Simulated assay, not measured.
Amino acid sequence: MARIVVVGEALVDLVAESDGRRFRADPGGGPANIAVGLGRLGNPVTLVTTLGDDAFGRLVTGHLTAAGVAPTVHPALFTPLAVVTVDGAGVPSYDFAISWDVPALDVPPDTAVLHTGSLAAAMAAGPVEAAMAAAPVVSYDPNIRPPLLGDRASERTRVERQIGLSDVVKASDEDLGWLYPDDDPVEVAHRWHGLGPALVVVTRGARGCVAVTASGQIERPAPKVEVVDTVGAGDAFMSGLLSGLLAGGLLDRNGLARADETTLSAPLADALASAAITCTRPGADPPTKEELRTAT
């Protein structure tokens, strides 16, 4: 089976308890969550990341390997942290202590699919884009975190450049709302499709998702669930989508050229179900293959 290589940050989420004084330490980071989701769904996956030689780094490494992820670690002074506060609707906000500065990335030469995005793609754009340009197939999720980014115009330029290196792109309506505050997110997805990707998907929370391909626009509703929080839901969507595309023989250039409403039906269902399951439990806790099979 083709190996998916995920490039990006792994960190520890310090999730505030109700009193605001105690915190739960959960392994996290968008790319790491996606790698874990892919591993739990039975896919061969490597995560190329940075971690410190510390207690949090060991916590993250154990979490990755338990999910079947093979980590390739670039040493860092400390393991990155995100302080997570969840509001009454289960929606998280983040404060970060992170550094992601690598001169080059140690990406396996037999990489079949490379997924990247999030903070690593913003903070180490040069090495990340070099890896994207060298990969046979690229998946990308910008996963916008405004407190750590530059001005909106320069970030739009960076994101659009990285989209031009990608074959599959997923973004939330919140991402697009920050990048293009005056534009409809679905219209932006159509513009992004024109930059080169075969598939662009916009997630819309409880309203499901919209996919844009050469054959047109596809809308799918989200499963109705009791939401505990939405931490990691977008990452679970991405891992479910990639796993579904791979299972359907679509995660290569020829397969993606055939992406339409029929071929994308199962991958989109897997993606939406993965996100929904994650919303029913606290933290970034994507489903296993058996849990997803039961839900779909």
Rank of each mutant, 00 (worst) to 15 (best):
G20F: 09
D184T: 04
G244H: 00
A273Q: 10
I163E: 01
G30E: 05
V5M: 12
G20I: 06
V102M: 05
T230Q: 10
L268A: 05
T262L: 13
L51V: 09
T203M: 09
P136M: 09
S215M: 07
I218E: 08
G234W: 04
L47Q: 03
G196M: 09
Y140R: 05
G196C: 07
L105I: 03
L114T: 03
G39H: 05
V107C: 07
A295K: 02
L11E: 02
L245Y: 01
I98E: 06
L251I: 09
F237C: 11
R21Y: 06
I144L: 13
V60K: 01
P181K: 07
L250F: 01
D53G: 04
P136Q: 10
N43T: 13
G88L: 07
A153P: 00
D182N: 09
R281P: 03
S243M: 03
V113T: 13
S265R: 15
G90N: 01
A32Q: 02
F237E: 08
H193F: 05
F56Y: 15
E160F: 13
S243P: 02
A271K: 07
C279I: 11
V6Y: 14
P147W: 08
P221G: 08
G8M: 12
T288D: 11
A122Q: 07
G240L: 02
L292V: 10
P267I: 10
A222L: 01
P31D: 02
A171L: 15
I277Y: 04
V113L: 10
F237Y: 14
T116N: 11
A112T: 01
D151S: 12
A120R: 01
P282M: 13
L199D: 05
V210C: 07
A171W: 10
C209F: 05
R22C: 06
L64F: 10
V201T: 03
A153H: 07
G62Y: 08
V128A: 11
D53K: 03
A276H: 03
A66V: 00
G90R: 03
A214L: 12
T46Q: 13
D173T: 00
L179S: 01
D19K: 12
G28R: 04
T85E: 15
N254M: 10
I163G: 02
H63W: 15
L256W: 00
D182I: 05
G177W: 06
L38N: 10
R22P: 04
L77F: 01
A16N: 04
L272A: 13
L51Y: 12
G30V: 03
V107Q: 02
N254Y: 00
P44R: 13
L250T: 04
A233H: 03
W100H: 00
A269C: 11
E219A: 15
P109H: 12
T65M: 08
L59K: 11
Y180T: 00
Y180F: 15
V48Q: 11
T294V: 15
L64R: 02
V169A: 09
D173R: 04
G194Y: 05
T72Q: 15
A134G: 12
V69M: 09
T262C: 07
L148H: 02
A153T: 10
